[in-house]
Design a protein around this nucleic acid. Sequence first.
DNA 1: TTGTAAGCGTTATCAG
DNA 2: CTGATAACGCTTACAA
Lengths: 344, 344
Amino acid sequence: MKSKNKPTSVDIAHLAGVSQPTVSRALRDSPLVSLETRRKVQKIARELNYKVDVNARNLRSQRTNTLALLLFEDSGENESFINPFFLSMLGSITRAAAQQGYDLLISFQQLSDDWNAEYEDANKADGIIFLGYGDYTSYIKRISKLDQEGAHFVTWGPVLKDQPGLFVGSDNELGGFLAADHLLKLGHTRIAFLGVESKDHPEFHDRHAGFIRAHQKHGIAIADELRFNAFFSEESGYTATQALIQSGHDFSAIACASDLMAIGAIKALREHGLRVPRDKAIVGFDDIPTAEHLAPSLSTIQQDTFAAGKALVDSVIHSINGDETKSFLLPTKLIVRDSCGAGI
Amino acid sequence: MKSKNKPTSVDIAHLAGVSQPTVSRALRDSPLVSLETRRKVQKIARELNYKVDVNARNLRSQRTNTLALLLFEDSGENESFINPFFLSMLGSITRAAAQQGYDLLISFQQLSDDWNAEYEDANKADGIIFLGYGDYTSYIKRISKLDQEGAHFVTWGPVLKDQPGLFVGSDNELGGFLAADHLLKLGHTRIAFLGVESKDHPEFHDRHAGFIRAHQKHGIAIADELRFNAFFSEESGYTATQALIQSGHDFSAIACASDLMAIGAIKALREHGLRVPRDKAIVGFDDIPTAEHLAPSLSTIQQDTFAAGKALVDSVIHSINGDETKSFLLPTKLIVRDSCGAGI
DNA sequence: TTGTAAGCGTTATCAG
DNA sequence: CTGATAACGCTTACAA
């Protein structure tokens, strides 16, 4: 079944009449080998369609030139469905890794799983990128050990004081601020906020903190009764919005902590005969590809997945190389579309 | 920088007072090792946080337990943008691979690249999944060699006579039929078709073939002047639709060979003051996540990415195992939404 | 049930 | 500049 016997560096050595380490060196274009020998060896290698066996190389050199991407999912989510924001990240990380000459090993993990962060231990990868860690508190516990062991990894997430490990994330506080600021400028004063309040979800916390700061800037009091818990998903946004409507509290706009939530919110509003943006304004968060195609198109806070992928890959490579590394945030940006209308 | 010296099976052997192969066997839970010894060894391994070095294992066993996914992109496409259909595939392939206990190595390739299909040669992976091969004719040339070498790979694509290698794909002919049949049932008789006509793109050809078959079934003549070339992208659908409108030919519906095209088509129609579905009906193809959120929601032909991912992974694994394998198609399905209206 | 010996295909080290 | 020799850490025979 399998192909013919693959040529090895020994085979080439014989054919070229040189020693086998010389072959190895020649193929890496080492200047320690004379140009003539190099040429000869490389020619033969090409003719035989020789490829270095990466397992042998990795074993000997203790380096894999591979990055592992561990994607964690809330197990509650729909089986066959991946958060589109993560999908975008996945795309840009793959690209960035390729650009740096690293292979990318991808693995989905269930949060419930016994944590399978053995990629570096098993020498499958030189470093790890974590995406979507679930809840922050238990995640931190889990990675503290990794960090002490000197593993090379970076996490997509919030940057907080005294965190173990390396983090890269979006400036969620800024995003929350921009969203609320936009609505407040449009004249809204009673703005609902959809997003979980918990130490376990610092991103949401930060988005809400920005939300508060914007209110302070405008001298508008926060209406705490308009804050509803919701996770990333559409269902969650839908449910929270129903609760909001049924609460009977007055509101003219909703700031959602994710675009999926916003989709659910719009659906719920519509079912109650409320139109966006005529009756209620909506802002999302993420800028997933669907956002611009929604009806109405969704104003939202954009996370730059392209920059994020590159930042994650660069960070973990720096860590691998033993360079100085530091956690940092990427700016978020307001994208104005139709879902907020022209103001009150 | 790197962690402490990782424990090896030899270390454990010493501690456990057994031979090193015994350790290796015990860790694989081989029944050839007494329960007692197994327990002892496993306990020590756990305490030391020992992990098998996959490079050593792979080198010795000549198996990697890894699949490579090579994703080809039309280089013309927007740099940071990946076809959402492929993104869905990527998600489901990752899942399916994990389920089968395989790691997944992902690589983006530019079509222009010097073909980097060396994954199996280099023993990085036991088999390869190809996604988005560009144009069929040159792709076939490229893989013929792989096939002769006995490489283990499967391609997402059309199933044709005398193909080299293994293919899994959607039943595009059926999809094209379902799309046109739906429109014809609604009373449309002059239906435009957007999709490239070329031997190099058999999927589009098949979709059009189904389109024709539906017309035949309904006894309606095909209006060849209503066929416009377009690729997958939104821009392409936009441009083709403009051309269609400017051609002055009468039409009441458009069948698009991809959802992205449909998005572009709707945009073009709207700019010409034409409303969907009131003035023109639209059917897409793929059922990308955005489709249901468009305004109007897009009727389309669904490709089952979940089944597809599983089928691709299973196929390549069968091939690796030397089992009998055969190319096959997965059924496509009509999803009725609002973009076709209630008929003429 | 366990141990011994060999080897997977490289790269590293050192000597020439 | 090149070559001999020894690892890298595991699995596969085969022998006991």
